[in-house]
Amino acid sequence: MAAEAISESRAGGDFWDGVRLSMPVVVASAPFAILFGAIAVDNGFSVLEAFLMSAMIYGGASQMVGIELFGQHVAPWLIVLSIFAVNFRHVLYSAGIGRRIAHWPLLQQAAGYFILTDPQFAVAEARAVSGKPVGFVWYLGLGLPVYVFWVIESGLGAVFGKMIPDTHALGIDFLLPIYFLGLVLGFRKRPLWLPVVAASAAASIIAYRTVGSPWHVSIGALAGVLLAVILPPHHSGIGERP
């Protein structure tokens, strides 16, 4: 009984640890959820469809792109392909985080991958690097608030979208780059961090100017990852130094 209570409060503590870390994400993503709902309705979605898209796809940038193309009456298969392209970076997250959560029961893993967003990956990966276990309860505490707020705020945006004030003055369009910069800097103690950041930044900017969005994300990411693959592994702190 006593042991049960202790392990329960441990699990509860893990959950709230995750919730605490989710708060910046909830704040940063709120304007985008509301904006998405508003734009979705503006482009011909019903409130229910906007709500469903957030609940089922749960990927902000890809939802915006999908809505935009839908509004321009692009062929459905092309809309789906574009959503896939924007979300393609998750393949790398999936391969990375798989090493940390492979010991979870299968259903928990299935749920874990469903909520694998940019911040979810970055914060979970940072925890794994710092030597702490990435448990399901903690991971859920980190991801669930973001998901719930995202879906509800999308619905609110769809219903009340017309009432949004000047988003530029509120800095809404630039909140996510700020947050992502903080995440990038959080990994600065990793071996090869600076060369990888430099390679990805250069490649993504060149690709953004030439190939265009959203491909600059995959191309830039690949450049950084390839650099780490090509350099002898000891540069990445793996294995023994020669």
């Binding site: 990966e125 993504s204 693959v229």
Partner: peptide, 24 residues
Amino acid sequence: PRVEAGLNAVPAAVLTTLVAPAVL
């Protein structure tokens, strides 16, 4: 080991691409 090195580079590599064009 090289694949592992690549996976370890994922956070910095991907997140950077979400910031760099916006900064420019």
